[in-house]
Design a protein around this nucleic acid. Structure first.
Lengths: 148, 148
DNA sequence: TCATATGGGACCGGAACGGTCCTCAATCGG
DNA sequence: CCGATTGAGGACCGTTCCGGTCCCATATGA
């Protein structure tokens, strides 16, 4: 199935971690890295991306750190993923000229938008608050079955 | 948003092309390549993958070619994508050991299954028959709006 | 029997991904 | 007011794999 880059994985993990943290308090990159097992410089890079997207905000200086800008219920997974992955879309909507002698209209690629929209909608349906524990066993089981 | 490899794009385009072809008749790789603008050897490689997944079948020898094994209504986009991309899942479900001193349970990664399932479900809802023309303008418009 | 057309690999250059490092800016404590 | 702490921003770089090509074996029809 669709592949996701490690950086994006990190983004979701870090955001979820912040979601399970009391409001107002900030978490330093060092602690976040230690918690998640992500290399500290890499975690820093991902958090910068989340910051630019307006998902997290930073408190600089001594005793600084990161915190979410909104409630976990108001942040969708789609937002987090596109913050790290970039707004490239599921396909680059290649517009190649191709003269087809069998079919008069070969622009199947425009229909990629349909797939794009379906995935986008699915990811917008999952919020950060859905990701923080506890793992619902039944859902996990279904997910594993669908994968194998 | 989620990125998809070019090979996977080719897979959907080729499968869609075959879907818009009369039953029983086979299409040679050369013609498919010319139709879609995909380099012929690459198209061949993708079609081999689709063949292994049981989506298309080949007629070898002179006047051979490819055709779908089933009706376009019975083939989902999820099937086509995983045929090319491999069954890697949206994440590799990394099982890293990470001792967290703040949270007792840091295994946010298990919840990736939820995302995985959502995307899988969305892609299973789109069939090959939905991809063959004509482009419904309203859907295309929504898709573009969601992207930008 | 030969031309045609796919099956199944090996092979390779280039782009990206993942990770590291350095310097500057902002904030807090003393 | 000064220095320690911590994030911002960017440059840099090795490795991976993606996309494309090629070769040979196999199957089929004329």
């Amino acid at each position: 199935m669709l592949r996701i880059s490690k950086l994006t994985d990190y983004g979701v993990v870090l955001a979820t971690h912040l979601a399970a943290w009391p409001d107002g308090r900030t978490l330093a990159v060092r602690d976040l890295a230690k918690c998640t097992g992500i290399p500290q410089p890499t975690a820093s890079k991902v958090l910068k991306l989340l910051g630019r997207a307006g998902i997290v905000e930073a408190q600089r200086g001594a005793h600084g750190g990161y915190r979410l800008t909104r409630a976990p219920e108001d942040i969708t997974i789609a937002e987090v993923i596109s913050a790290v992955e970039g707004p490239i879309g599921v396909t680059e909507c290649a517009t190649e000229v191709s003269a087809c002698e069998f079919e008069p209209k070969c622009d199947v690629r425009t229909n990629w938008q349909r797939i794009n929209q379906a995935v986008q909608h699915a990811l917008e349906g999952i919020r950060l608050s859905d990701m923080i524990l506890p793992n619902r066993p039944e859902l996990v089981r279904i997910g594993r079955a669908a994968q194998g």
